[in-house]
Design a protein around this nucleic acid. Sequence first.
DNA 1: GGTTGCGCTGGAGTGCACTCCAGCTCCTAG
DNA 2: CTAGGAGCTGGAGTGCACTCCAGCGCAACC
Lengths: 168, 168
Amino acid sequence: MDSVMDSVVVPASQQALGIRQVSEETGLSIDTLRWYERVGLLPLVERASDGRRRYPPDALRFIRLVQALRRTGMPVADVRQFIELGGGELANHPERMALLERQCAQIEERMVELRDDLAVVQAKIETYRDLIARGLDCEDDLPDDMVEQLQADELLAGTLPAVPRRQR
Amino acid sequence: MDSVMDSVVVPASQQALGIRQVSEETGLSIDTLRWYERVGLLPLVERASDGRRRYPPDALRFIRLVQALRRTGMPVADVRQFIELGGGELANHPERMALLERQCAQIEERMVELRDDLAVVQAKIETYRDLIARGLDCEDDLPDDMVEQLQADELLAGTLPAVPRRQR
DNA sequence: GGTTGCGCTGGAGTGCACTCCAGCTCCTAG
DNA sequence: CTAGGAGCTGGAGTGCACTCCAGCGCAACC
């Protein structure tokens, strides 16, 4: 009985979703979902009899791929191109694959860049840690030339305040 | 003699750079460098007597920090805020450090996201590899239901072409 | 001494990716 | 039967981060 209910009447959670659910599920705004569809990023959205969007579960998986491409820096226009390759059936698979492989390469570059940039920021944090340690230790008895030294440090660390220096 | 020339007359490569050199060095366009300065991202640019920009080597290091922040997703407005904290001297160091630490956390999140998205794209590539292997193997003797099977695969893999299916 | 090249300025323009809106339809609850 | 809520459409608007441009100044070279 249960099984009849579950599998025949309502195939449960596998049913098409409304736009609101998809929005919550994916983190894309409702407006963005509609816009993606308009510009051709989401070809497989169906409609209920009253005109409302129904997203089959497949669409959800598809959206996640689109999100992955977008988040990793592929412009909307390129994503659309990738999707348009769907019309030509089998023949286009190698082309689509090549496109994805190019994207993978870019993601990897991006990761390297990100690692480097992280290192830069962390290095900068270290210099602050130093400056604070040395600066706050003796906060009240800094001789003038120590202050100058700190400024020089900061300068060397690449963070000059917009203050004239070297004069006076 | 050589050493006198090098160290006294021209401290060599350590001298201030023109905007063109900085542009080439950093990859930022000349326009962008000027614009960054206008909006307050580059406080330490000096001018030659004829009004042209001279970038001390410190500026170069500073620009690299700015680039790291920008590339890792910090909005220009936030970078400016960070820089404006420079005016207040020592007292602001903890705040600046905190700002950078927040940014670090975000970078790490971004890296995780990137890794996940890469996995999604790679998974998709795998499905294409499969489809191609199976599809191209028997390109000419595909029975109709095999074609259907491939389309279903593609659907499952999340890449439905904008073609009516299931009907007929 | 003209002209060529590089740089300067303030302001306008561009491209991208959404985001918002007015006015409509449909459905449901009271 | 009406009021409210969710969704729909086409089109306009927004925010960000540059990018381009006209008109000018200076310096060097021919």
